[in-house]
């Protein structure tokens, strides 16, 4: 039993327990004991002219947050880094004046006493006082995966549920943009870097993995999702392994 308390103390020292330090102004979270936030304020980053620029800025910002990356599993101390790791989530949205903007972040999550389960509860709505709420278009649901794992079942069901509220496609100045969910990852712990992300686009069924290489960004289609129950959101994923090429279909 003593061992467990020392373990806990060590995790606290690493940053696993809530501290009394002032909350990062980039973050919002509910007060202790309060219900989960149901709307997210904006803006945090932007305005951007292209969704790619906004996405990469969000990747760098989210992965710069404490314990956003647990690094590689084969590196010493991975278990401890995993236990203290955190997920952060946000929306990237499109404004009536044709800009891409990133909302503030939240790290509100379902508590797991064992600190092994990681989650982020992303509010469905963004409130940006500059625009009427119904004028915002939801483009990317953003979060990080501390280990860089693939998108989870809950991630896929989340974005379909949000698509049924906000729509799966939005008209922008650069064309019709599809709603998608993204999970950023870093291969390093400190300092973390935007090394890639997993992406799922409900309208096409594409599951993609983007990685940054010395020669630039590369995209691989890792799967295709088919829905079998439109109410219970049951689905299967056909595993794929090939580069992203126009004209090859989903």
């Amino acid at each position: 039993m003593h061992g467990s308390w020392w373990w806990c103390a060590w995790l606290c020292w690493l940053g696993g327990c809530a501290s009394s330090a002032a909350l990062d102004p980039d973050l919002v979270r509910p007060a202790a004991g309060a219900a989960f936030l149901e709307e997210l304020p904006g803006p945090l980053l932007g305005p951007f002219d292209s969704p790619s620029d906004a996405l990469l800025a969000a990747c760098g910002k989210i992965l710069s947050k404490p314990h956003a990356s647990s690094g590689r599993a084969d590196h010493p101390g991975f278990d401890a880094r995993w236990r203290v790791s955190s997920e952060y989530c946000a929306w990237l949205y499109y404004t009536p004046d044709d800009h891409y903007v990133v909302s503030r972040l939240t790290d509100q999550s379902r508590v797991d006493p064992a600190q092994r389960s990681k989650s982020c509860l992303l509010p469905s709505r963004v409130v940006d006082a500059r625009y009427p709420p119904e004028a915002l278009r939801y483009i990317y649901a953003l979060h990080n995966h501390p280990y860089g794992s693939a998108l989870s079942s809950n991630d896929l069901r989340f974005i379909v549920s949000e698509g049924r509220v906000h729509g799966f496609e939005s008209e922008t100045k650069t064309g019709r943009v599809r709603l998608s969910i993204v999970a950023f990852f870093s291969n390093a712990v400190e300092p973390s870097s935007c090394d890639g992300f997993h992406q799922f686009i409900p309208l096409t069924g594409q599951v993609l993995k983007w990685t940054r290489a010395a020669s630039g960004w590369r995209c691989e289609q890792t799967g295709r999702v088919t829905w079998h129950d439109v109410e219970a959101l049951d689905f299967t994923i056909e595993k794929l392994h090939g580069p992203c090429l126009r004209g090859t279909g989903p």
Partner: peptide, 17 residues
């Protein structure tokens, strides 16, 4: 290699499922 003309994170190039 993937198609270099696809911007990072772009969602417009795939066919609808």
């Amino acid at each position: 290699p993937s198609d270099p003309s696809i911007p990072v994170g772009d969602t417009t190039w795939g066919e609808a499922h």
